[in-house]
């Protein structure tokens, strides 16, 4: 157990170092950092002085070490475009993205699990077939088109929901939330649903497949034979056992929800990190790009790690599998 966690930790550190290296290479070799920072009328001598001051003449490995050291403390330098510390910009935008991701993860669970259970229990009903076909179309549609269609329907034709921004926000210390005001709540419906749709279909299909699998097992047959009420068999016995993979998959999907939020935020002009990142790409604002990359990687690595450890704790069957497959 301990050796497994240590091995996983080492792997995670390696992944983070690789990502940090890519981010550092971006930072140093894409364009000239000096000419990105100073004005046109800076003399050559001043530029050289700044270069020396920033340590850009140091050996590669020293610079990389310094970059990692600063990154660990959350310091990614100044944004070329906004002329503010990148960490401040990201801290300011993070609540919006996390709120959106959280609400849509919640939505996809609250809609996906019941739909999956329903389609598994009533496999041959017309409604189930409609839901399954609908989910295939849902997977094929690009996220941004779903967003645009929703804006057209709810924002332009029926005018019931706001089409951009977060609405009014309330500041709680350093965290700003839109979940406490009416306009904020209204604003989050469409972006969260757009973002949730893909994960929802994923969870639904997963729950359905797992349910069908478990309904065939002996212990369910035995429960039925014992004459337990249908509801108890379906929900207390079957559903409970489907939830382990569902929880782990949802955990793994949180990372990609945050990444896919880039698209949703862009469609709905949601002032989160994704929008910041897209603007940074258009402006070639390398420090923001590098910081975003490292942060997303950190999210992914941490979530992966937690999920892996949870696997071990929750499901003893996997322990045997994993050890025997030598991972």
């Amino acid at each position: 157990m301990i050796s497994f966690i240590v091995k996983r930790l080492l792997q995670s550190v390696l992944v983070m170092l690789t990502v940090a290296f890519v981010a550092f290479a971006l930072f140093n070799y894409v364009g000239d950092p000096i000419s990105n920072m100073v004005g046109q009328d800076t003399t050559f001598a001043e530029r050289e002085q700044l270069r020396e001051q920033l340590g850009l003449n140091d050996p590669f490995i020293v610079q990389f070490g310094r970059f990692v050291g600063k990154a660990v403390q959350g310091d990614f330098g100044l944004s070329y475009h906004h002329k503010q510390p990148v960490s401040d910009l990201i801290a300011e935008r993070m609540p919006a993205t996390l709120e959106l991701s959280f609400i849509s993860a919640l939505m996809s669970l609250l809609l996906g699990i019941p739909l999956g259970v329903y389609t598994a229990l009533h496999r041959d009903s017309i409604i189930s077939k409609l839901i399954m076909t609908g989910s295939l179309i849902g997977v094929s549609l690009p996220t941004f088109l779903i967003g645009i269609l929703m804006i057209l329907l709810f924002g332009v034709v029926w005018r019931v929901l706001p089409t951009f921004g977060r609405g009014d926000v309330v500041h709680l210390g350093w965290w700003s939330t839109g979940l406490l005001t009416e306009s904020g709540l209204k604003s989050i419906i469409m972006p969260a649903f757009t973002l949730a749709l893909f994960q929802m279909t994923l969870i639904m299909r997963l729950v359905r497949a797992e349910m069908l699998e478990i309904l065939r097992t002996d212990f369910i047959k035995f429960a039925r034979a014992r004459g337990l009420p249908k509801r108890s068999v379906n929900y207390r016995h079957a559903l409970k056992n489907t939830l382990v993979p569902v929880i782990t998959i949802t955990g793994l999907q949180i990372g990609s929800i945050i990444a896919f939020a880039i698209i949703t935020e862009s469609v709905f002009q949601w002032p989160g990190m994704g929008l910041l990142f897209i603007q940074a790409i258009s402006d070639v604002d390398i420090p923001i790009m590098a910081a975003y990359l490292v942060m997303i990687a950190l999210f992914f690595v941490v979530i992966n790690l937690i999920v892996d450890v949870l696997y071990f704790l929750v499901d003893p069957r996997l322990r045997v599998d994993r050890v025997s497959s030598g991972r």
Partner: peptide, 22 residues
């Protein structure tokens, strides 16, 4: 493995961003 832990769109975005810088 490392690449697979990131969504494809993010990698494509990043490469595009780098190309813009170069």
């Amino acid at each position: 493995d490392v690449q697979l832990s990131f969504p494809a769109i993010l990698i494509a975005l990043l490469i595009d961003g780098v190309a813009r810088g170069i």
